[in-house]
Design a protein around this nucleic acid. Structure first.
Lengths: 157, 157
DNA sequence: CCTGAATCCATTGACGCCCATATCATCCCA
DNA sequence: TGGGATGATATGGGCGTCAATGGATTCAGG
């Protein structure tokens, strides 16, 4: 298992700590570090998080632009500048910074959503409404395509 | 960790001292010196700062122009000439010069913004507005990239 | 001497690290 | 097959260390 899949909802404790779901931890463990990179999602009121693969992705995007170019500086500001490096404690927990929590309107619970090479962190209620909307879009798209794939949970292995 | 990442906001004390965030200090420590190079940013009302890698970048930028060319002289003046060498005290603090503070409109607080090989120092309120603009541009850039289906992994957002 | 600067010390609060408890799933065995 | 044992996970809390900040003391130069 080397991808972030499925969703989990966790509580924040009185110190603001939240456990990273164990399956995600095993994926992160392959990085060899106990760091979690986390930045506000550009498109959603949520957070994107992951290990070194996420960081490498960001670096690759920035490195496409020459030093001192305007595009590079702004990419770097928007991505590097907003990316927090969170330390994972011995129990597999992290503490989100205030700015991260503020962006995603997180208070006492979070929902982890696997996106393959990274995962997204939502305030649970917001995720529910977001998911409902996304489902609706997919349903309409499927309708338009005349898909016969009624069975969305079709077996994998 | 060998890169400047994330943002931190710090206060200046009555003597004008400001603590460099500890994570940045560990990056700088690899230079082996207790010096910080700092110059007004070319494009922004902010300061660029870093260790020897920042100086190497400046050198490389200047060396792209032929000796004695006008562009080279001006770049050298704009970068070398305005670069201050600040001493980091035993508590990890520096004192910004008046001209540096003036360029960035810094009074009693600063925001450190990691840009990978260097970091930028902003007056906090100015940074907030700048970041909002930068994120908007990246969002649009992402739209342009996102419309191309072959763009495999760059799902920044 | 007097002023500004550099070095040293002191306080407070946050964070890292460790240990404790509970809930739950799995496994083993009678 | 039922029930207890086992282990892992999620969560709570205590405590020591370090970072950030403020203040004092020493030093250099005019």
């Amino acid at each position: 298992m080397d991808r972030f899949v499925s969703t989990y909802t966790m509580r924040l404790d009185s110190k603001g700590r939240v456990s990273i779901p164990a399956p995600y931890r095993t994926v992160l463990a392959k990085d060899g570090t106990d760091l979690l990179y986390c930045h506000p999602s550009l498109a959603e009121p949520a957070l994107d998080a992951g290990g070194s693969r996420l960081m490498a992705e960001i670096e690759a995007l920035i490195d496409r632009y020459p030093p001192y170019s305007e595009a590079r500086e702004e990419l770097a500001a928007a991505l590097y500048g907003t990316t927090e490096t969170l330390k994972i404690d011995s129990e597999g927990r992290v503490v989100l910074t205030d700015s991260l929590k503020h962006h995603a309107a997180i208070t006492d619970q979070v929902t982890f959503v696997g996106l393959g090479h990274k995962f997204r962190i939502w305030e649970p209620e917001r995720f529910r409404t977001h998911l409902a909307e996304a489902r609706e879009k997919v349903r309409q798209l499927r309708h338009a395509l005349g898909s016969r794939a009624e069975n969305e949970g079709s077996s994998i292995g």
